[in-house]
Design a protein around this nucleic acid. Structure first.
Length: 551
RNA sequence: UGCCCGAUAGUAUAAUGGUAGUACGACAGAUUUUGGUUCUGUUUGUCUUGGUUCGAAUCCAGGUCGGGCAACCA
């Protein structure tokens, strides 16, 4: 086997097309509807569309599929642009289906003139009634055989706004008996006298998806129009319209959309979570949106690597969210600055350390990066360590602190536990230790090797920080497939807010950096942070083999 | 009971008629001043029944299972 990565089915098609001389360059498009924020499923499509033209030469357009003014807003346009850019992709042209409304109208007129479209006076119930079902053919509309002149006149008057919303439609005249429901005289224009985010009140009619998408592809000379599997049955209509309009033959190809367990990836559901305040917004770090991942501390690289690894195929798939976590850990491990933060403190008194004194200790910025250098950390005789890092009666193989045992304080000294102070409820309030002055990190002459290393902060120097610890948004793998409403399966513990003690160096934290809180996880400064109160989002935990053993 | 799409380890994804491989996970071990990282090893798979062929995950036929399609949404 060569070390070259094997091709996915779209790459194969493109390589064949290129070899056959069918195209000199590849043109794709990413076509979001601006009616919501982009999520990780869109990231797959973005990486695919932009990745293909980057690999084979050509370009990708960003085209907003804005043909339904009742759901679309400029806020969404802005967020989509920001997200695509953040992911690291540049579009050639920023385009809108609404840019083509005049052309699309002419296309419809052409179809009418060819006797391939007609104005139908039936309302939506009547149309549905005659549509048939997947197993029975439909029946023709009584308005199907109007003259070209009559159709032209009626369609013009639809455009002029003469008729009520929903009172008439323009339909392609294809085949009411087709086994493919989409070919049973699909509606291509509807009356909708609604304000459009770009064209304002210019139009009383708007094209349907099927009459806008493929035509926009064609106008832009898109060579490979890549969409998800649910559009497979639309493909005959896509081709029929292009053929009968006699326009540039873009080709549609379909791949399986991304599904992730323990979350939902449907705009309809995500918008509910936002509107019903189950989350704080589209960019809530628990959301599977690109903006949510960004705020949580994910990097564009990690998301791109993820999309690369999950591949592109036509079979339905549900990816384990753990794979995404793997890629963010992999990246953050390389770049995150190491800091020490104690989440749930218990006090350690170093009885042989000079009272009231402190010293500066050097800690690695990042052991994975030899050029990262060191940071200064205050050490004193009064410390906090993690409550879970001490046990009075430890099980076997516990190599944290316990009476009589020694541990290394990361980047500092080895200490031994001499005594434990408890309150009247039996809760440990203080651990008395002695330190080995000759065991200082980097200058250790003690000759003692200890198994455990703990993170710590100096009590008089510690700064208070707020930590937002996130867990999966849903407590079941596939909330959409459970009985009842998907929101019944929200994880009540998806957010846990903790006030913690951090080394003072963290006061300089910035959103330009990623942090690893030693032995705790990866953290990212949140936009809610103020000078008085630093707020960090937990991007991901560290792997924890000890916890996994169930001890 | 119409049409369309699909089926390879737990999850994804390769092998394009010629040794079923890779990643994640799981398990075991080594290293480690993060029970992190890194390294090594182990484990588990071609939906089914026929056919074609010297040879089938791959080609053909039947079946089974899963998904999609009956919005004036995209």
């Amino acid at each position: 086997m060569s070390d070259e990565k094997s091709l996915n089915f779209l790459e194969e098609i493109i390589e064949e097309d290129l070899k056959a001389g069918k195209y000199t360059q590849i043109i794709t498009r990413f076509p979001p509807e601006p009616n919501g924020y982009l999520h990780i499923g869109h990231a797959k499509s973005i990486c695919l569309n932009f990745g293909l033209t980057k690999k084979y030469g050509g370009y990708t357009n960003l085209r907003f599929d804005d043909t339904n003014p009742s759901t679309e807003e400029t806020e969404y346009v802005e967020s989509i642009k920001e997200d695509v850019e953040w992911l690291g992709f540049d579009w050639k042209n920023e385009l809108y289906a609404s840019d083509y409304f005049d052309t699309l109208y002419e296309f419809a007129v052409k179809l009418i003139k060819k006797g391939l479209a007609y104005v139908d006076d039936m309302n939506s119930e009547q149309i549905a009634e005659l549509k048939g079902t997947p197993t029975e053919p439909g029946k023709e509309s009584p308005f199907r055989n109007r003259t070209v002149e009559e159709n032209l006149d009626l369609f013009r008057r639809m455009k002029e706004g003469e008729f009520e919303d929903g009172s008439r439609t323009l339909r392609a005249k294809i085949d009411m008996a087709s086994p493919n429901m989409h070919m049973r005289d699909p509606i291509i224009y509807r009356i909708k006298r609604t304000h459009h985010h770009r064209t304002g009140d210019d139009w009383a009619i708007y094209p349907m998806y099927d009459f806008a998408h493929g035509q926009s592809d064609s106008i832009e000379n898109i060579t490979h129009s890549i969409c998800t599997l649910e559009f497979v049955p639309h493909r005959p209509l896509y081709d029929w319209l292009i053929e009968n309009l006699e326009i540039y033959p873009s080709k549609q190809y379909e791949f399986a959309r991304l599904n992730l367990n323990y979350t939902v990836l449907s705009k309809r559901k995500l918008i509910q979570l936002v509107n019903e305040k189950h989350v704080t917004g589209w960019d809530d770090p628990r959301m599977p949106t690109i903006s949510g991942f960004r705020r949580r501390g994910y990097t564009p690289e990690s998301i791109r690597n993820f999309c690369d690894r999950i591949g592109v195929a036509k079979r339905e798939n549900i990816i384990d969210i753990g794979l995404l976590e793997f890629f963010i850990r992999e990246h953050l491990n390389k770049i995150a600055l190491r800091r020490m933060v104690v989440f749930d403190p218990v006090k350690v008194s170093v009885t042989n350390y000079p009272a009231g004194q402190s010293e500066i200790i050097k800690g690695e910025e990042n052991p994975e990066d030899p050029n990262a250098g060191t940071r200064d950390i205050e050490f004193s005789g009064e410390l906090y360590i993690e409550r879970e890092d001490f046990m009075e009666n430890p099980p076997k193989k516990y190599f944290r602190l316990s009476p009589g045992q020694m541990v290394r304080l990361k980047s500092a000294y080895i200490i031994r536990c001499d005594d434990v102070v408890k309150d009247n409820k039996g809760e440990v309030t203080e651990i008395k230790c002695t330190y080995l002055p000759e065991s200082k990190s980097g200058a250790d002459t003690s000759g003692i090797n200890v198994r455990g290393t703990l993170h710590w902060v100096s009590v008089p120097h510690a700064v208070n920080v707020e930590l937002r610890l996130y867990d999966r948004l849903f407590k079941v793998e596939d909330p959409s497939n459970e009985d009842g409403d998907f929101k019944d399966y929200l994880n009540p513990h998806s957010l846990d807010v903790v006030n913690a003690y951090a080394e003072p160096g963290l006061l300089d934290a910035s959103a330009e950096e990623r942090y690893q809180f030693l032995r705790k996880g990866y953290f990212y400064l949140d936009k809610d942070s103020t000078k008085e109160k630093l707020v960090f989002n937990r991007t991901a935990t560290l792997r924890d083999d000890w916890a996994k053993k169930g001890k």
